[in-house]
């Protein structure tokens, strides 16, 4: 453990700072010194994979294997900026009616990439006996 981390934890134990402040300080010292917080692994992500496989070796369920280039997703997300303001407002209000609070202005491709990266290896078992895996590679 680094000296800075020890010091923050000591300050927390001595009640000089509260938990939120300690968390912020720890996050600040964990950021790289060059100002970029890009994870090197993230840059290597090339594809989003969606796999659907039947559970069990001799089951005859549906099989899906889709590989989507991350650059294609990034390019696709840029189309959001082309939605006219009027249409954007209508879509947002329609989503609000359904209880989904969405602001297209705040939606950035980097956020979407963050979600995909944090998915890591999402695995869902469907009732029909299929295993769904979503991950980046």
């Amino acid at each position: 453990m680094s000296n800075e981390k020890k010091r923050i934890l000591e300050m927390l134990s001595q009640n000089k700072i509260n938990v939120d402040e300690a968390e912020r300080l720890l996050a600040a010292i964990e950021e790289p010194s060059d100002g970029t917080n890009a994870n090197p692994e993230k840059k290597m992500l090339k594809y989003l994979r969606v796999l659907v496989e039947p559970i069990g070796p001799d089951s005859k369920g549906d099989r899906v294997n889709v590989r989507i280039p991350m650059n294609l997703i990034r390019a696709g997300l840029k189309w959001i900026s082309l939605i006219p303001k009027e249409a954007r407002g209508k879509v947002e209000s329609a989503l609000n009616d359904k209880g989904i609070d969405m602001d297209f202005k705040k939606l950035r491709p980097e956020d979407f990439e963050e979600i995909l990266f944090n998915l890591n290896d999402l695995q869902v078992e469907v009732d029909g006996g299929e295993k769904v895996r979503v991950f980046c590679e």
Partner: peptide, 8 residues
């Protein structure tokens, strides 16, 4: 690199 393989 786009690949789609669906068998139902």
């Amino acid at each position: 690199g786009l690949e789609v393989d669906v068998k139902t």
